[in-house]
């Protein structure tokens, strides 16, 4: 009996290996694939690779010819970018398919809504959302020692795989915006 009590006592002194969730949180890994997709409109060309590559076909993209700078190659303006989150399984293949590093997984997991229509992420929500991209399939972010949600949000020029100039000809809007920003920086 003493031996049994010794086992009990030794286990009594141990730290628990559970956490009580809403108050204590486990630190997620930056690669965590979660919701609140991070999307950079400045980088997106509307090629719809993500929509084609989604196994469930839940990304809806509508583009229209851009009036601003068609001659410079800024061909399309994004009209719709809907992600039907209620059917999403967070496999991340859309992120893998994106050639311009415009779409990132998010780090959240607490998306509960009362209506199913509220679960559709619209283009406005994607525009306004705080940019805390997950580092999943984005090795350039892992080198930065960046943790989503624990620092400042990232801007579109910080998240690219290569120098942003490499696809200028695809997205003239980027060049225009960048030029304006540069001049502001100098002033």
């Amino acid at each position: 009996m003493v031996k049994g009590l010794a086992v009990t006592l030794s286990n009594l002194m141990r730290k628990p290996f559970t956490t009580s969730y809403p108050e204590q949180r486990i630190r997620q890994h930056p690669r965590f694939r979660g919701e609140e997709f991070t999307w950079y409109e400045e980088r997106c060309t509307g090629c719809a690779s993500c929509a084609k590559y989604c196994p469930l076909g839940i990304i809806k993209i509508v583009t229209s010819p851009s009036e601003t700078a068609p001659l410079q190659g800024d061909k399309y303006r994004l009209e719709t970018f809907d992600i039907e989150l209620q059917r999403c399984m967070f496999c991340g293949l859309c992120v893998e398919a994106c050639p311009y590093d415009a779409l990132f997984m998010g780090s959240g997991f607490e998306e509960g809504q009362y209506k199913r229509t509220d679960l559709v992420i619209t283009i406005d929500r994607l525009r306004q959302a705080e940019k805390n991209p997950s580092t999943w399939f984005r090795p350039q972010l892992e080198g930065m020692d960046y943790r989503p949600g624990e620092g400042r949000p990232l801007g579109w020029r910080e998240v690219g795989r290569e120098n942003w100039r490499w696809h200028q000809h695809e997205k003239a809007g980027m060049r225009l915006a960048a030029g304006r920003d540069d001049s502001e920086g100098e002033a």
């Binding site: 997620q28 890994h29 690669r31 965590f32 694939r33 399984m89 967070f90 496999c91 991340g92 293949l93 893998e96 997984m105 997950s134 999943w136 399939f137 090795p139």
Partner: peptide
């Protein structure tokens, strides 16, 4: 989760290897 961002539904491997280092 460190390897592939998910705990159960991993989707880690791809034809021709694994998705990333």
């Amino acid at each position: 989760e460190m390897l592939c961002g998910a705990r159960v539904t991993v989707s880690y491997m791809r034809p021709g290897g694994v998705f990333a280092d």
